[in-house]
Design a protein around this nucleic acid. Sequence first.
DNA 1: CAGTTATTAAAACTCAGTTGCAAATATAAG
DNA 2: CTTATATTTGCAACTGAGTTTTAATAACTG
Lengths: 126, 126
Amino acid sequence: MGIIRKTESVEILLNEFHDTETALSTIELIKRLGKRINKTTIYRVLSKLEEDGILHSFLGFDGVKWFARCKACTRSQHSDVHPHFQCISCGKTECLEVKVNIPKLTNREVLISQFIIKGKCNLCVA
Amino acid sequence: MGIIRKTESVEILLNEFHDTETALSTIELIKRLGKRINKTTIYRVLSKLEEDGILHSFLGFDGVKWFARCKACTRSQHSDVHPHFQCISCGKTECLEVKVNIPKLTNREVLISQFIIKGKCNLCVA
DNA sequence: CAGTTATTAAAACTCAGTTGCAAATATAAG
DNA sequence: CTTATATTTGCAACTGAGTTTTAATAACTG
Ligand SMILES: [Mn+2]
Ligand SMILES: [Mn+2]
Ligand SMILES: [Zn+2]
Ligand SMILES: [Zn+2]
């Protein structure tokens, strides 16, 4: 059950993602918006936006949840299966628009996969 | 600074991994050993064994930490860069002995990567 | 065995995320 | 515009994995 009503919280959160291509962690969003929106609401709106295919999420190396805008997903079809890149220097975390090769596994059914890469981003490589 | 002394805790924990090829979560290990070893000690010994290249770790989809035996790692060289498979039915989590293709990224330095796949294991596919 | 140093248990703590519930507000009906 | 109703929100309390602190204990060294 995704978003039904266009509330202020929904608009504020959508706006954060409107400005940027990079992913945002729940922590960062609470830091930015915690005075305007209760953290419970932030978590709830984010997961509703994910259900609606507007955002997708993944876990960073530290186990914190990150969200990023979807390109072409709907409520029924989530097609954002790309790797994510996390920079150890500046923290920037982004979607990598490349195809993931999921290895052929005999006798196993693959449902979801998550590929996360840690390193130095284009701005932080010396 | 890895393991220096052969203590009972170290032996008990190593023994858990000796029996099995599959990964074990910290949660499962605390459930199994929590009456014999304090959970703090479990966490500490596990991370020391990881430093020594005896175990390697990764985060499951729920953000819980899993550990598995290394094949050919040392303190200085961790070479366990394979995907991990987590079964949604039985919970079994295992190392996949296949090569991961890390996508070529321009202007970025790759340090670590984690690839985790969720699905149904060989025993649970109907 | 005795001295030194690493390791352990226990309890308190941290912190991301969740739950329950009453108050607030968006939306639709009249 | 006003009212009814169902969704959404804020707050406070909670959960649970993992960490920190400190004093006691056990492993190594000679
Ligand atoms: Mn993405
Ligand atoms: Mn493995
Ligand atoms: Zn960077
Ligand atoms: Zn299974």
